[in-house]
Design a protein around this nucleic acid. Sequence first.
DNA 1: GTCTCTCCATACGGTTCCGTATGGAGGTGG
DNA 2: CCACCTCCATACGGAACCGTATGGAGAGAC
Lengths: 194, 194
Amino acid sequence: MVVRKPRLGPDDWTAAALTAIGEQGLAGVAVEPLATRLGTTKGSFYWHFANRDALLEAALRSWDETYTDAILRTVDAEPDPAARLRALFVAVTASDRAPVEVHLHAAADHPAVAPAMRRAVTRRTAYIAAQLTALGFDPAEADRRALFAYATYLGHIQLVVRIPEAVPHGAALEAYLGTVLAALLGQPAANGTG
Amino acid sequence: MVVRKPRLGPDDWTAAALTAIGEQGLAGVAVEPLATRLGTTKGSFYWHFANRDALLEAALRSWDETYTDAILRTVDAEPDPAARLRALFVAVTASDRAPVEVHLHAAADHPAVAPAMRRAVTRRTAYIAAQLTALGFDPAEADRRALFAYATYLGHIQLVVRIPEAVPHGAALEAYLGTVLAALLGQPAANGTG
DNA sequence: GTCTCTCCATACGGTTCCGTATGGAGGTGG
DNA sequence: CCACCTCCATACGGAACCGTATGGAGAGAC
C-alpha cells in the first residue's frame, strides 16, 4: 500500500482521494492519512494544493469525467436507443463504481459536492430521457420515467453498498433487473389486481 | 433553541440526538455540541450514558419505533392491501421524515447503524411484499417488486434531501408518483415502443 | 563545483471532539 | 439541620485533524 514514488504530482493525490472516497467516503479525504498511504508527508501535499478543499474539487472533477462523461460516451456508441439504455443499465449495475457514487451522494451537503451531484443528475437523467423520447414516449412521460429510473438506480446502489444481503444474486438478480426494466420501459399499464 | 429544563433525563438526550441526525447526520451526534444545544454540559451526558455509542444506540431504537413500527401500525389499519400500499406511499413521501432516513443510510458503515438499516429494509420490504401477494402477485414477483419499490423510495428521498431541484413539485409531482405507482403495481407489461 | 529551483520532512500551534476526575448544588429522608 | 443521593459544572488529558513555518535534499544550468 505504501508504494513510494520518488516524486508525486497533483494527479497522484487526486487519484488517492477518489480511491479514499470509495473506501471511506468524504472523511477519507484527509491530508495526513492520505500522505501516509502515499508514503509521504503533508509537506508534499501543501506544495501541490492550497488546502483540503482544493484536493476535493480536483477529485470531483475527475469523478465527473470517469463516472459520467466516459460512461455516456461509451454507451452512446450503441446503435439504437434501446441498446443504449440496456448498455447503460449493464454498465452501472455490473461494475464496482457503486461505493464512490454512494459515498459522494452521502456527502452532498458539502458545498463542493452538491454542485457535482447536481451536474450528474441533470446530465444522466437528460440522457435517459432523450433515449426514452427516441423510443416514442412523449417528453413529459420520458422525463418522469428518467427520474424514476434514476431514483431506482440511486436506491439500488445504496442497497448494494450498505445492505448487500438485501439484494439478490445471480439468477434472482437477473429476474429482478428484468422486472425493473419491464416496469421502466413498458407501456403505462392499467391497474391490475394480479 | 437553548431551552433549559431544570433536569434532563436520557430521553431528552435521545430526542436531541435524533433531531441532530436529521439536521447534520451522524456527525451531529456529538456530545459537546448537543450539550450546548440542551443548555447543559458533558457532565450531564456522562451521568446518563456510558459514552457516545450508547446514545447512538438509544437514538436508533427510537428511530425503529417512530420510523418503522408506528408507520406500519398506522398503515395496517387500512381496510385492504391496495389502500395500505397507497397510505404507505403517501406517508413516506409527504412528511418530513426524509432527512433522518437519508442521513442514517449515509452512515450505514457505522457498526451500530448497519443493523438498524438491515432491520428496516427487512421489515419494510416484507410488509410491501405481503400486500403485493395479497393483491395476487406470486410470491417471487411480489418480493422483486417490493425491493424495486424500496429502492425507488430510497432514491427518491435521497434526491428530495440532496438535490431537491431535481424533484418535481405540485401537479408534476402527482403525475410523477402516478407513473411510479402504475409501474410498480401494474401488470408485467410487454415491451413497448411508445 | 556551486547556484538555484523544485519538491518534501519536521516541527509547531490551533480546533474540535471524546472521555475522566472531581467538586459541588439542590432536593429528600430521618 | 444534616447527611445523603442525584444530577450537573468545570477542568483536565488525549486523539485526530488542518494549516503554517522553515530547513533542507536532489537534480539540472552553467
